[in-house]
Amino acid sequence: MGALPMDPMQPRPFRIEKVRKELADTFTLELVPEEGGEFRFAAGQFNMLYVMGVGEVPISISGDPGDGARLIHTTRAVGAVTAAMGNLKVGEALGVRGPYGNPWPVEAAYGSDLVIMAGGVGLAPLRPAIYQALANRERFGKLVILYGARSPSEILYPKELEKWRGRFDTEVQVTVDRAAEHWSGNVGVVTKLVKRASFDPLHTVAFVCGPEIMMRYGVQTLTGAGIDPSNIFVSMERNMKCGVGFCGHCQWGTNFVCKDGPVFPFDQIADIFSIREL
């Protein structure tokens, strides 16, 4: 089931088993393959999700890579296809192509401290890496999760963040841009959390995901804290269409984001990351 179908452009039908509203504009779909079996993927990979008769969008997988029974996608409604996806009901069908792309190098980070920095719905593509890291907790040094959201009501997966924070072996810090008086948590941008986080920069791997502007400042702060750019990984988003590097829509410099990414080591893309025209 994890292998690509014969025709990589042919979506497979999945049935919606559960719909969960996460935030005002963000929802999670739990999908199962109509033909049965399991869906295997690596943390950081994405699928092309096809809403019948409306269109297709690339969406990162946000479930547990250790659980092949359900395919989970958290999506923010930002256009016609994702809005239509958000209106789908339990029992309705969705076409799925994938999984595609380069994953987060979770196993390559074994033996290091792991810092995970996410902003807004950027936590969704990182959640599989968090699940995998927690399932293999003894293989890492410090595990630090830094998360920023606009406001307390826009914190994604708040119950899971609380659960992870409740563990004695994981540091979870959450911050928001602004809050009302009753919020007793942190206020400020996510990059400000780095100073207070506990990790050894010389032996740390960092995964960063969020809007590009957040990743730009996130990488600046992490390198400023002493983490080598080759140990910082970012997940890029471009206009992906085919998902397999045929069409060229997601070309970014010499890379195809769908095939060479979406996860890149920062040193590999540092030269083009700041080019505004790309």
């Binding site: 930002v78 606009r150 841009d177 941008v189 990059t191 809007p211």
Partner: peptide
């Protein structure tokens, strides 16, 4: 710098998507 970043709305969607 932090105030400017907060003004940027770091976590919002970059543009209208699909």
């Amino acid at each position: 710098h932090a105030a400017r970043m907060q003004m940027l709305d770091l976590y919002g969607p970059a543009k209208k998507g699909k």
